[in-house]
């Protein structure tokens, strides 16, 4: 409920800020040869897929990130984040199971426009440090492991006022874990960006 209220509040702020956008003259990427980098913070919700979804149907977490603009539509995005999976009540001894991950991701973004509403697509590649107490393998495991991870998605960035913006994104996760239980899922993110380096 609180999450819904927060989303409504942000959307209302965005709608209120719309008239100011026409006066915005320095959006990221508009100054040729100048890198308009930004930092970001966002929360996300993940809907798990495949065999992972039975014991761990969803996850929530957050990222902090740093984006470096390259004229005039490309960004190199670096992100670090953490997520924790919810354990299904249908699984026996669910209170003994847990799955969480630290995400270290990076990759390119391409912005279709650099003015006002800025839709983009991206590919992130990186490493997950996964902590698990689970039955995903043949036997019960309690371990920490480093796993390859990648995400492919699209999003929308919107400058609200000054150097502040809001970002919405959706992505497909294909993170490695076990042959029969990869950490696949659809992830939905919402966050704020602050342009720096101008």
């Amino acid at each position: 409920m609180r999450l819904s209220a927060a989303i409504l509040l942000i959307l209302a702020s965005v709608a209120h800020a719309q008239p100011a956008m026409g006066q915005q003259t320095e959006l990221p990427g508009e100054n040729p040869g100048v890198l308009n980098s930004f930092v970001s913070a966002q929360g996300f919700y993940t809907r798990a897929l495949g065999n992972l979804a039975a014991p761990f149907p969803s996850a929530a977490g957050g990222y902090v990130g740093y984006g470096i603009f390259y004229p005039d539509r490309y960004v190199l995005m670096l992100q670090a984040g953490y997520s924790s999976y919810r354990t299904s009540d249908d699984v026996p001894h669910s209170s003994d199971l847990s799955l969480s991950a630290i995400h270290l991701m990076g990759g390119p973004r391409y912005y279709f426009t650099t003015d006002g509403l800025m839709p983009f697509v991206f590919l992130h590649v990186g490493l997950n440090i996964v902590q698990e107490k689970s039955m995903l393998a043949h036997d019960a495991v309690d371990r920490t492991s480093g796993q390859f991870a990648w995400q492919l998605g699209f999003g929308l960035m919107l400058v609200i006022v000054g150097d502040f913006g809001v970002e919405l994104n959706a992505k497909y996760n294909s993170h490695f874990l076990y042959h029969e239980a990869m950490m696949t899922g659809f992830e939905y993110g919402l966050g704020l960006t602050w342009t720096v380096g101008r």
Binding site: L49, G50, Y172, S174, H175, F176, M182, M183, T184
Partner: peptide, 11 residues
């Protein structure tokens, strides 16, 4: 098969 591939991921 497409949905299964998306759900199960790589091998």
């Amino acid at each position: 098969t497409w949905w299964r591939n998306i759900s199960m991921g790589w091998e």
